[in-house]
Amino acid sequence: MSEILTKSRARNVFYGGSLFFVVVFVAMTVHSHRYIVETSTAGMPLTDEVRLGKHVWERASCINCHTLHGEGAYFAPEVGNVMTRWGVLDDPESAFEILNGWMQAQPSGIEGRRQMPFFDLTEEETRALAEFLRWADQTDTQNWPPNDAG
């Protein structure tokens, strides 16, 4: 064993093999990038309103309570399919109204209940957030989550 596997051979296998996997990974990333842009997220146009919604989502650090496509903090419900759960995936006006009503009612202050903070958003920002969540919900996520509960 020690004659076949010398230190320099082990080192060369490490460098050579790693380089190989990096090249494969980069090639697959390029393909995935194009697939995301052209196929999986092409269901709804990426408008300026959706972009603004993403900034609102980030500025409020929603990800540190909620999950989005299963990634986040597990402290609050999944929102990648929240528009489906509310039954307003194809209805921007109702999506805004439900979201706005929910956001305005926070924090609930109910004892023993997890509290969502109050975020002081303009109507434009809340509309944008609703559009961002509708946009995310239209993404082809390989049929995840398994059901509407998220």
Binding site: S32, T41, E71, T139, W144
Partner: peptide, 17 residues
């Protein structure tokens, strides 16, 4: 590295990839 680089794929199941 042989496992970890392509192992990134286990995060690419449900995010639109």
């Amino acid at each position: 590295l042989f496992s970890g680089i392509l192992g990134t794929g286990h995060h690419f199941f449900w995010i639109g990839t």
